[in-house]
Design a protein around this nucleic acid. Sequence first.
DNA 1: GGCGACTATACACCAGGCGTATACGCCGAG
DNA 2: CTCGGCGTATACGCCTGGTGTATAGTCGCC
Lengths: 184, 184
Amino acid sequence: MSTSTTLLALLEPGPAYGYTLKQNYDRWFARRRPLAFGQVYSTLARLTRDGLADQVEVESGHGPDRRLYRITAQGVGVVDEWVFAPEPPEASAAGTLHARVTVALLSGRDPADVLARQREAHLTRMRALQAQRRGSTGPELLAVTYELAHLDADLRWIEESGARLGAVREQLVAAREGDDDARG
Amino acid sequence: MSTSTTLLALLEPGPAYGYTLKQNYDRWFARRRPLAFGQVYSTLARLTRDGLADQVEVESGHGPDRRLYRITAQGVGVVDEWVFAPEPPEASAAGTLHARVTVALLSGRDPADVLARQREAHLTRMRALQAQRRGSTGPELLAVTYELAHLDADLRWIEESGARLGAVREQLVAAREGDDDARG
DNA sequence: GGCGACTATACACCAGGCGTATACGCCGAG
DNA sequence: CTCGGCGTATACGCCTGGTGTATAGTCGCC
């Protein structure tokens, strides 16, 4: 939902072609999630079908038809809602790190190793971002800061969890023994 | 990739039916991402096709055929790699909050309002989690702590960004004026 | 005069995800 | 005893999102 709504939002300042839309997208959001040309057109088709955008003009002649898309009033409503509606709770912690640690615990792999490797990768990435941050202003500064904040959150969690792994493992074993589930 | 690998990992302790697999999944990961029954079977089909799992037995007679699935050696390798490989950088900041603030800035909506609403929602959620946390041990404590850490990261970013919004907006307007792009 | 870069779109395909249909057994209410 | 609901178990169809590739004209340049 996020990608299509983002594209829709980029139509708000005025009508645009799929191609220019993609260029604008790259300018602001490529850092967060790269986007293929192909997807722009399928997304525009869906938005049109759903009444959130419409084709204002089809300019034919030189090359392929150029289709000018415009956001509808309904589309503006959707963007509006998306922008201001707080994220639902579960989306806040969507990373896979926690899942990976859980799997390690369940499968007898060493979770401390998982944490250690992730910690190294994060530290490397943070150093790069901190360097980049010093030269940044405006929107880029916002983006860099956002990523740094979440890497930092992961690091704190890594420290805290690392200290607790022993206790967690015991809990888990106990929980499993309470089972007697049907397993071949 | 994460969901299918997670299911695969749950096959490691021993062969299982799709149904029991889903129950096990719910037990450990439902908090993070709910999973429909339907998806379990299509995922198992893909895993089988790709040689990461195979059918060990088809038990027919009472009701629908019960199919027992087993992880293959290759499957174990895939889980192993996934568990220990650090997440790629871009995945760390996958939330939409930053995107929503950017859209607000681009579209003339009030980004401070976006931040304020998200802040309220986060604070509410955090109070609930902190209460839950006091009664938690083991794996659940890990999960709660993980989410809390990321909510906290968002809050810090919200504070920091809020103070900088004026400067960011200027940067953004300047960048746009440097354009003269082909727009309607 | 042909080659590459840029503008512009369409199409086919795959994975992931959601809802619903199907089928059997068991158990309690009436 | 039978009917309906619940638990076990799987299959199927459909949609969204995402990726790659084909197509086609235009422009500049050597």
